[in-house]
Protein backbone atom coordinates (compact mmCIF):
# COMPACT_ATOMS: atom_id res chain seq x y z
CA UNK A 1 0.00 0.00 0.00
CA UNK A 2 2.87 2.33 0.87
CA UNK A 3 6.32 1.86 -0.56
CA UNK A 4 9.36 4.01 0.17
CA UNK A 5 12.49 3.48 -1.88
CA UNK A 6 15.96 4.94 -1.37
CA UNK A 7 14.54 8.14 0.08
CA UNK A 8 16.92 11.08 0.55
CA UNK A 9 15.76 14.26 2.24
CA UNK A 10 16.91 16.92 4.65
CA UNK A 11 16.70 20.52 5.74
CA UNK A 12 18.79 23.00 3.77
CA UNK A 13 22.31 21.75 3.35
CA UNK A 14 22.15 18.95 5.91
CA UNK A 15 20.85 15.65 4.62
CA UNK A 16 18.97 13.70 7.29
CA UNK A 17 17.72 10.75 5.25
CA UNK A 18 20.40 8.93 3.33
CA UNK A 19 18.51 6.23 1.50
CA UNK A 20 15.56 4.96 3.51
CA UNK A 21 13.61 2.00 2.14
CA UNK A 22 10.50 0.53 3.71
CA UNK A 23 7.11 -0.94 2.83
CA UNK A 24 3.71 -1.08 4.51
CA UNK A 25 1.37 -3.84 3.36
CA UNK A 26 -2.42 -3.28 3.39
CA UNK A 27 -4.03 -4.00 6.72
CA UNK A 28 -0.81 -4.16 8.71
CA UNK A 29 0.73 -2.05 11.44
CA UNK A 30 4.38 -1.25 10.83
CA UNK A 31 6.56 0.34 13.48
CA UNK A 32 9.52 2.60 12.83
CA UNK A 33 11.81 2.90 15.84
CA UNK A 34 15.22 4.43 16.47
CA UNK A 35 17.12 6.98 18.50
CA UNK A 36 16.25 10.66 18.71
CA UNK A 37 17.55 12.33 15.57
CA UNK A 38 17.86 9.11 13.57
CA UNK A 39 15.44 10.54 10.99
CA UNK A 40 12.10 8.94 11.91
CA UNK A 41 10.08 12.12 11.87
CA UNK A 42 11.91 13.31 8.77
CA UNK A 43 10.90 10.07 7.06
CA UNK A 44 7.28 10.74 7.94
CA UNK A 45 7.46 14.30 6.69
CA UNK A 46 9.14 13.27 3.47
CA UNK A 47 6.41 10.70 2.85
CA UNK A 48 3.53 13.09 3.52
CA UNK A 49 5.04 15.97 1.57
CA UNK A 50 6.01 18.29 4.43
CA UNK A 51 9.49 18.33 2.93
CA UNK A 52 10.34 17.41 -0.63
CA UNK A 53 12.69 14.45 -0.98
CA UNK A 54 15.83 15.14 -2.98
CA UNK A 55 16.00 11.60 -4.31
CA UNK A 56 14.04 8.35 -4.17
CA UNK A 57 10.41 7.27 -4.58
CA UNK A 58 7.30 7.24 -2.43
CA UNK A 59 4.50 5.07 -3.84
CA UNK A 60 1.03 5.32 -2.34
CA UNK A 61 -1.49 2.77 -3.60
CA UNK A 62 0.38 2.41 -6.89
CA UNK A 63 0.88 6.15 -7.49
CA UNK A 64 4.20 7.96 -7.18
CA UNK A 65 3.64 10.89 -4.86
CA UNK A 66 7.13 12.20 -4.07
CA UNK A 67 7.46 15.92 -4.81
CA UNK A 68 3.72 16.60 -4.54
CA UNK A 69 2.45 19.13 -2.02
CA UNK A 70 1.29 17.74 1.29
CA UNK A 71 -2.31 18.69 0.54
CA UNK A 72 -2.25 16.77 -2.75
CA UNK A 73 -0.84 13.66 -1.07
CA UNK A 74 -3.47 13.93 1.65
CA UNK A 75 -6.20 14.03 -1.00
CA UNK A 76 -4.78 10.82 -2.47
CA UNK A 77 -5.55 9.01 0.77
CA UNK A 78 -2.69 9.51 3.20
CA UNK A 79 -3.46 10.77 6.68
CA UNK A 80 -0.56 11.95 8.78
CA UNK A 81 -1.04 12.58 12.47
CA UNK A 82 2.08 14.66 13.12
CA UNK A 83 4.55 14.75 15.97
CA UNK A 84 3.34 17.08 18.67
CA UNK A 85 -0.29 16.46 17.64
CA UNK A 86 -0.76 19.84 15.96
CA UNK A 87 -4.47 20.15 16.59
CA UNK A 88 -6.05 23.45 15.50
CA UNK A 89 -6.12 25.10 18.91
CA UNK A 90 -8.68 27.87 18.40
CA UNK A 91 -11.15 25.60 16.58
CA UNK A 92 -13.64 23.36 18.32
CA UNK A 93 -13.08 19.63 18.68
CA UNK A 94 -15.81 18.91 16.18
CA UNK A 95 -14.42 21.39 13.64
CA UNK A 96 -11.02 19.73 14.00
CA UNK A 97 -12.60 16.39 13.20
CA UNK A 98 -14.58 17.78 10.26
CA UNK A 99 -11.42 19.28 8.81
CA UNK A 100 -9.88 15.84 8.99
CA UNK A 101 -12.39 14.78 6.35
CA UNK A 102 -11.90 17.99 4.36
CA UNK A 103 -11.05 16.36 1.05
CA UNK A 104 -14.22 14.24 1.05
CA UNK A 105 -16.76 16.86 2.12
CA UNK A 106 -18.67 19.63 0.35
CA UNK A 107 -16.93 22.96 0.85
CA UNK A 108 -19.87 25.14 1.76
CA UNK A 109 -22.93 23.63 3.38
CA UNK A 110 -24.21 20.19 4.22
CA UNK A 111 -20.81 18.91 5.24
CA UNK A 112 -21.89 18.17 8.79
CA UNK A 113 -24.62 15.78 7.64
CA UNK A 114 -22.33 14.03 5.23
CA UNK A 115 -19.73 13.44 7.88
CA UNK A 116 -22.06 12.36 10.68
CA UNK A 117 -21.38 8.64 10.31
CA UNK A 118 -17.64 9.15 10.56
CA UNK A 119 -18.06 11.54 13.46
CA UNK A 120 -20.09 8.94 15.33
CA UNK A 121 -17.43 6.34 14.72
CA UNK A 122 -14.70 8.59 16.13
CA UNK A 123 -16.89 9.62 19.06
CA UNK A 124 -17.57 5.96 19.84
CA UNK A 125 -13.86 5.28 19.77
CA UNK A 126 -13.11 8.30 21.99
CA UNK A 127 -16.19 9.09 24.12
CA UNK A 128 -14.26 11.94 25.78
CA UNK A 129 -14.23 13.80 22.50
CA UNK A 130 -18.02 13.64 22.23
CA UNK A 131 -18.31 15.23 25.65
CA UNK A 132 -16.01 18.04 24.57
CA UNK A 133 -17.13 18.43 20.97
CA UNK A 134 -17.85 22.15 21.33
CA UNK A 135 -14.73 23.00 23.31
CA UNK A 136 -11.68 24.69 21.72
CA UNK A 137 -9.11 22.02 20.94
CA UNK A 138 -6.30 24.03 22.53
CA UNK A 139 -7.91 23.70 25.95
CA UNK A 140 -7.84 19.88 25.93
CA UNK A 141 -5.26 17.98 27.94
CA UNK A 142 -2.31 16.43 26.14
CA UNK A 143 -3.88 12.99 26.11
CA UNK A 144 -7.20 14.28 24.78
CA UNK A 145 -5.38 16.22 22.10
CA UNK A 146 -3.63 13.03 21.05
CA UNK A 147 -7.01 11.28 20.80
CA UNK A 148 -8.26 14.18 18.73
CA UNK A 149 -5.25 14.04 16.43
CA UNK A 150 -5.82 10.32 15.84
CA UNK A 151 -9.54 10.85 15.37
CA UNK A 152 -8.91 13.67 12.94
CA UNK A 153 -6.70 11.41 10.85
CA UNK A 154 -9.32 8.64 10.92
CA UNK A 155 -11.98 11.03 9.62
CA UNK A 156 -10.24 11.02 6.26
CA UNK A 157 -10.86 7.26 5.93
CA UNK A 158 -7.25 7.03 4.83
CA UNK A 159 -5.68 4.30 2.76
CA UNK A 160 -2.58 4.66 4.90
CA UNK A 161 -2.24 6.44 8.19
CA UNK A 162 1.04 7.81 9.60
CA UNK A 163 1.16 8.21 13.34
CA UNK A 164 4.17 10.08 14.68
CA UNK A 165 5.15 9.75 18.35
CA UNK A 166 1.66 9.39 19.81
CA UNK A 167 3.13 8.90 23.28
CA UNK A 168 5.22 12.06 23.25
CA UNK A 169 5.03 13.90 26.55
CA UNK A 170 2.13 11.86 27.85
CA UNK A 171 1.84 10.19 31.21
CA UNK A 172 2.36 6.40 31.06
CA UNK A 173 -1.29 5.73 31.83
CA UNK A 174 -2.37 7.73 28.81
CA UNK A 175 0.29 6.08 26.70
CA UNK A 176 -1.23 2.71 27.52
CA UNK A 177 -4.62 4.00 26.45
CA UNK A 178 -3.16 5.23 23.16
CA UNK A 179 -1.70 1.81 22.50
CA UNK A 180 -4.99 0.09 23.33
CA UNK A 181 -6.62 2.31 20.72
CA UNK A 182 -4.00 1.35 18.17
CA UNK A 183 -4.62 -2.34 18.86
CA UNK A 184 -8.32 -1.75 18.34
CA UNK A 185 -7.75 0.06 15.04
CA UNK A 186 -5.48 -2.79 14.02
CA UNK A 187 -8.28 -5.25 14.68
CA UNK A 188 -10.48 -3.14 12.41
CA UNK A 189 -7.91 -3.58 9.64
CA UNK A 190 -6.22 -0.18 9.46
CA UNK A 191 -2.98 0.28 7.52
CA UNK A 192 -0.64 2.14 9.81
CA UNK A 193 2.94 3.32 9.93
CA UNK A 194 3.83 4.12 13.52
CA UNK A 195 6.84 6.06 14.77
CA UNK A 196 7.49 5.58 18.43
CA UNK A 197 10.25 6.16 20.93
CA UNK A 198 8.83 3.57 23.33
CA UNK A 199 10.22 0.77 21.22
CA UNK A 200 8.83 -1.97 23.39
CA UNK A 201 5.22 -0.84 23.22
CA UNK A 202 5.52 -0.25 19.50
CA UNK A 203 6.83 -3.75 18.92
CA UNK A 204 3.94 -5.18 20.91
CA UNK A 205 1.32 -3.86 18.49
CA UNK A 206 3.26 -4.02 15.21
CA UNK A 207 3.19 -6.74 12.55
CA UNK A 208 6.56 -5.67 11.22
CA UNK A 209 9.19 -3.18 12.29
CA UNK A 210 12.11 -1.15 11.02
CA UNK A 211 14.95 0.24 13.12
CA UNK A 212 16.44 3.51 11.90
CA UNK A 213 19.98 4.69 12.49
CA UNK A 214 21.53 7.80 11.01
CA UNK A 215 19.06 8.32 8.22
CA UNK A 216 18.65 4.78 6.97
CA UNK A 217 17.13 1.46 7.97
CA UNK A 218 19.65 -0.52 10.03
CA UNK A 219 17.61 -3.58 10.97
CA UNK A 220 14.18 -4.85 10.01
CA UNK A 221 12.04 -7.85 10.79
CA UNK A 222 9.01 -9.07 12.71
CA UNK A 223 8.82 -7.98 16.34
CA UNK A 224 9.77 -11.49 17.38
CA UNK A 225 12.92 -11.40 15.28
CA UNK A 226 13.89 -7.95 16.50
CA UNK A 227 13.31 -8.94 20.10
CA UNK A 228 15.95 -11.61 19.69
CA UNK A 229 18.41 -9.30 17.90
CA UNK A 230 21.30 -8.52 20.26
CA UNK A 231 21.94 -5.12 18.76
CA UNK A 232 18.32 -4.02 19.00
CA UNK A 233 18.03 -5.24 22.56
CA UNK A 234 21.18 -3.39 23.58
CA UNK A 235 20.24 -0.12 21.91
CA UNK A 236 16.46 0.12 22.25
CA UNK A 237 15.01 -2.53 24.50
CA UNK A 238 17.72 -2.65 27.18
Amino acid sequence: MLLVEDLHAGYGASEVLTGTTLAVKPGTVVALIGANGAGKTTTMRAISGGIHPTKGRVVLDGKEVQGLDASAIARLGLAHSPEGRKVFGPLSVEDNLLLGAYSRLPRFLGYRAKASADLDRVYDLFPKLRERSGQAAGTLSGGEQQMLAIGRALMARPKVMLLDEPSMGLAPVIVQEVFRTISRLKAEGITLLLVEQFAKSALEVADYAYVMERGRIAVEGTPAELSRNERVIAAYLG
Binding site: S48, G49, G50, D69, A70, S71, A74, R75, A79, H80, P82, K86, V87, F88, L99, G100, Y102, S103, R152, A156
Partner: peptide, 8 residues
Amino acid sequence: DAAELMGI
Protein backbone atom coordinates in the same frame (compact mmCIF):
# COMPACT_ATOMS: atom_id res chain seq x y z
CA ASP B 1 1.54 22.66 7.99
CA ALA B 2 -1.12 20.70 9.83
CA ALA B 3 -3.77 22.12 7.52
CA GLU B 4 -1.80 20.84 4.55
CA LEU B 5 -1.88 17.38 6.10
CA MET B 6 -5.70 17.56 6.06
CA GLY B 7 -5.64 18.08 2.30
CA ILE B 8 -6.18 21.83 2.59
